[in-house]
């Protein structure tokens, strides 16, 4: 099948590439060297591939690269270089010990950022709902919720 040409701005850099129509955004990002976007279940369940696409969090494994044509994508690493909120979350994750194997962390930070940015309050139940699409098999979630709560509290002051 014929390839299509797409232009996607990833972490502020314009990337132009030919992709197969059935390639997903996750594979596209990783093929371009954005290895901080992790590949987990690949069917929209685990959330570790979550990125910010045109201002909203999306699961890149169930988004086609073609759908991102003309759009803007931010990954956890890219945001960590420029976005203050993401930096705070990254720091809080370290301080609270919210990272064990670290595989879910990029998705968790994006989910936390999306929650706080949409006016999310320091409310444990609401935070749990906000990260309900992200699986963590190590921490038992408590420390992740602690970290997001901490930042939400800082931001609401």
């Amino acid at each position: 099948m014929s390839e299509i040409n797409i232009t996607v701005t990833v972490n502020g850099t314009k990337i132009n590439a030919n992709v197969k129509p059935e390639m997903n955004l996750l594979k596209f990002l990783r093929s371009q060297g954005f290895y901080d976007v992790k590949c987990g279940c690949e069917m929209g369940d685990c959330g570790t591939c979550t990125v910010i696409f045109n201002g909203s969090s999306v699961k890149s494994c169930i988004t086609l690269a073609a759908q991102a044509d003309g759009g803007t994508v931010w990954t956890n690493k890219g945001l960590g270089e420029v976005d203050e909120l993401t930096q705070k979350l990254q720091k809080a994750f370290v301080e609270h010990g919210s990272i064990q194997c670290g595989f879910c962390t990029p998705g968790m930070i994006i989910a936390g950022k999306a929650y706080i940015e949409k006016g999310g309050k320091p409310d444990r139940n609401e935070i749990k709902k906000a990260i309900s699409g992200n699986l963590c098999r190590c921490t038992g979630y408590k420390k992740i919720v602690d970290a997001i709560y901490d930042v939400a509290e800082q931001m609401s002051k």
Binding site: V58, I62, G133
Partner: peptide
């Protein structure tokens, strides 16, 4: 329904 990241798409 589902996760926020799914409802966004």
């Amino acid at each position: 329904m589902a996760a926020i990241a799914v409802r966004n798409m």
